[in-house]
Nucleic acid binder design. Structure first.
Lengths: 156, 156
DNA sequence: TATTGTTATACTCTATAACTATA
DNA sequence: TATAGTTATAGAGTATAACAATA
């Protein structure tokens, strides 16, 4: 990289956006290490923090992860007492995964770190710009999540 | 995903942004398949399209890829006559990788597809919003690329 | 017969280490 | 001694397939 990004790359909005997402994730990964969790564990806790109970299948769809990966993820959290599995009485194949008080407390600490990373990365933006970007991305992703709810895809 | 994304996830700007980047990349991957290249090959061509010549090392830094991965990537392009390697006469360890005319032509076709994917994904945004987002992300990434030029990191 | 969750296995991708040639 | 590029290999991460329990 002699003198900055080649213009052919810099002008690709998708490339810049992808790397921005990667940067945010890596920084958060670093910040979460002292808490003993990965970004994925944090995302599970984030879901559970506003959902009472969820099945592993539902969480896999939201995170775009293969359901087999949710097993180990929930295992990790349960082993540390951050969430608990109970069978769904109305469909005993499913678990009802719920965050414990410890899990909610850890989520709050992790969420603070995530917000700090966000403030760091988005530092160059004014409050107006930031809220425009955040709302814009949210609106852009609405059709994606709608489609995802109907025809779940996986990978990554 | 019973009723949309759990709020704990939806409110995480970093999560939405990461998935947006993933979505853009996956859609482009699909669109590029008929051209017989992956997104990575396209990104290499994009760099070469505005840079005359670059070393494999420089390109690895820009794409945040391990230099060993650039070998196969440039091999692929060279085998199809899309780029060519010549030794740098001033430092015969380095290659000067250059896009051929065919490479530039394929890049233009791929860039058109990338722009179409962008138009599709960012469809919900007004022109003003889109340009605000694109410029904002570009500004956010400036310090990242500056740091990357000094202390290259890898992975992904 | 289909679905949730589980396990074990195979596969893909990436990083690591060792090497050549240049500097 | 250090760097660009190459190769082969080991490791991490992921998907695939088969299974048990339930619907």
């Amino acid at each position: 990289m002699r003198d900055g990004l080649p213009e052919g790359l810099a002008s690709l909005a998708g490339f810049q956006l992808s790397k921005c997402g990667w940067w945010l994730e890596q920084r958060l990964e670093e910040e979460l290490e002292p808490l003993g969790i990965r970004v994925r564990h944090f995302l599970v806790l984030a879901m559970l923090s506003t959902s009472e109970t969820l099945s592993q299948q539902e969480m896999a769809d939201c995170l775009l992860l293969d359901p087999t990966l949710m097993v180990g993820l929930v295992d990790d959290l349960e082993a540390r007492g951050l969430c608990e599995r109970t069978r769904d009485p109305r469909d005993r194949r499913r678990y009802r995964v719920r965050a414990t008080e410890d899990g909610r407390a850890l989520h709050r600490r992790a969420r603070t770190l995530a917000d700090e990373v966000g403030a760091e990365v988005f530092g160059p933006l004014s409050d107006d710009e930031l809220s425009t970007v955040v709302r814009a991305i949210g609106r852009v992703m609405e059709p994606f999540w709608a489609e995802q709810a109907l025809h779940p895809r996986r990978k990554r």
